[in-house]
Design a protein around this nucleic acid. Structure first.
Length: 214
DNA sequence: AACCAGGAGACAT
DNA sequence: ATGTCTCATGGT
């Protein structure tokens, strides 16, 4: 027998009350957020940290420096984060966009989102990471953890498109940057802890509401 | 030692 | 519009 299902709002309270504030995004500057957003594509964060540290030690954590390197040389710094050839190009595309764009921070959120999506290597999740955590816009980030968690709780259909899922969160929750920031971080934290592909349902604080645990 | 990690582009259907 | 391949290092 299963306890009453969560709503998108009550689940947020449950996670926050249990885990507390997550202090995301783990980065020093907005630009570092953007670099991390690209490098963490389908990659464990620990490996991204190493790549970012390589760039920091080489004093390359600025758009002009990265844009000026050859893709091959940039790729060497990115090695630990995987897909280094692909990510070298993507990072340079992002940097060149930043250098070319006049005042991105002054653009309306949907306009800015469109510009980001037009940059090579920036898809919906990476764009939304950047919008939320670098530009402080109220955009809800959907990632693999979000799909898996809400799908397991049977709160959302995991097969829905990225845009459909994002719309659901943004319609249901208030358009609040602080809440979107914390909610996504909490989902990530919870997922890493107990809701991996192989879930640890015994240690899960939601297990009574999760069909996957019975 | 297979499996997975804070996806996205290219290409075919 | 939707499905499949590829990209690659480092944990467990």
């Amino acid at each position: 027998m299963r306890s009453k299902p969560y709503t998108l709002k009550s689940l947020y309270r449950r996670l926050f009350n249990h885990y507390g504030s997550q202090h995301w995004w783990p980065a020093e500057t907005p630009f570092e957020v953007m670099v991390g957003a690209v490098l963490t594509q389908n990659t464990a964060w620990i490996n991204v940290q190493r790549a970012i540290e390589n760039l920091r030690q080489a004093e390359l954590l600025e758009p002009a420096a990265i844009a000026g390197l050859t893709p091959k040389r940039l790729a060497r710094y990115l090695r630990p984060s995987g897909y280094f050839n692909v990510k070298a190009k993507r990072l340079q595309a992002l940097c060149r966009w930043l250098l070319a764009e006049d005042a991105p921070a002054s653009l309306a959120t949907e306009t800015l989102r469109g510009r980001l999506l037009s940059v090579h290597g920036i898809g919906p999740e990476t764009a939304d990471d950047i919008l939320l955590y670098a530009y402080q816009r109220p955009v809800f980030v959907i990632d693999a953890y979000t799909r898996r968690l809400f799908s397991r709780l049977e709160l959302l259909d995991g097969e829905l498109s990225y845009e459909a899922l994002r719309a659901t969160f943004e319609k249901t929750l208030p358009a609040d940057v602080a809440i979107y920031n914390e909610y996504h971080a909490l989902i990530d934290h919870h997922a890493k802890l107990v809701c991996r592909p192989k879930p640890k349902c015994e240690e899960c604080i939601l297990k009574a509401a999760c069909p996957g645990s019975v």
